[in-house]
């Protein structure tokens, strides 16, 4: 009898897996990984490529601001993911794990480039005392998209990355702690500082609004 995995009512032939579009759409990322690890069939990893290549590339491009670099970075990130897929524990969503690798990789590239480093994760105390009222999340989230893009491109990459993690990917503080390997209080402070920089840069760019 042909070995099969039965997942959520899906019968997956392990010896000759033919993945229909509908079947692949019905599978969650975690199920795809499970079957890929069991079969080592590249078709299953292709499903993950289809789902995430554009998003990973988009994040790389947004942080690195260079298409060729972003393409190389996306390629290397997928190689890393493929090689360490067996280490994926499933404690978090696959997308969270993938994006954490993406952010860390891009931050490393920026560090290596030594351009626009800003304060990535350290030197929180190096800031002077900045007295700015608490900035509401809604204030940032309701910013005009074109202006948002302009401001994000002006602030240091580390600040941009942490704001994208929090508002674009909606990572929890705990997840950001894991990605940056920092304590909760350090991450909260980093977010606060990034929001302050955002507001300051916004005011500089769009004086009429200040």
């Amino acid at each position: 009898m042909t070995p099969q995995i039965i997942e959520n009512g899906l019968f997956i032939n392990l010896l000759n897996p033919v993945i229909s579009g509908a079947a692949s759409k019905a599978m969650t990322d975690e199920e795809v990984i499970e079957v890929y690890l069991a079969t080592q069939n590249a078709n299953y990893f292709n499903i993950l490529y289809e789902r995430y290549t554009a998003k990973v590339f988009g994040k790389c491009y947004s942080l690195l601001k260079n298409e060729a670099q972003a393409q190389d970075a996306a390629q290397e990130i997928f190689v890393k993911v493929l090689l360490s897929l067996s280490k994926f524990s499933g404690k978090s969503k696959f997308s969270t794990w993938l994006y954490s690798i993406t952010y860390n990789f891009c931050i490393d590239v920026i560090r290596k480039n030594k351009k626009n480093i800003g304060v990535l994760v350290d030197d929180i105390n190096a800031y002077g005392e900045v007295i700015i009222d608490e900035i509401e999340d809604s204030e940032l989230m309701e910013t005009n998209v074109i202006r948002l893009k302009a401001v994000l491109n002006k602030i240091p990459a580390g600040d941009k990355a942490i704001l994208l993690m929090k508002y674009q990917d909606e990572f929890s503080i705990k997840e950001i702690c894991g990605i940056l390997n920092k304590s909760e209080s350090a991450v909260k402070m980093k977010i606060k500082r990034a929001k302050e920089k955002f507001k300051k840069t916004y005011k500089e760019l769009y004086i009429d609004v200040a």
């Binding site: 998003k55 947004s62 809604s138 989230m141 309701e142 005009n144 893009k149 994208l164 508002y167 674009q168």
Partner: peptide, 14 residues
């Protein structure tokens, strides 16, 4: 609540 960050992501992808 509106989220401009998500809109930006879509815009950049296009």
């Amino acid at each position: 609540m509106r989220n401009s960050f998500k809109e930006l992501e879509e815009l950049e992808m296009q």
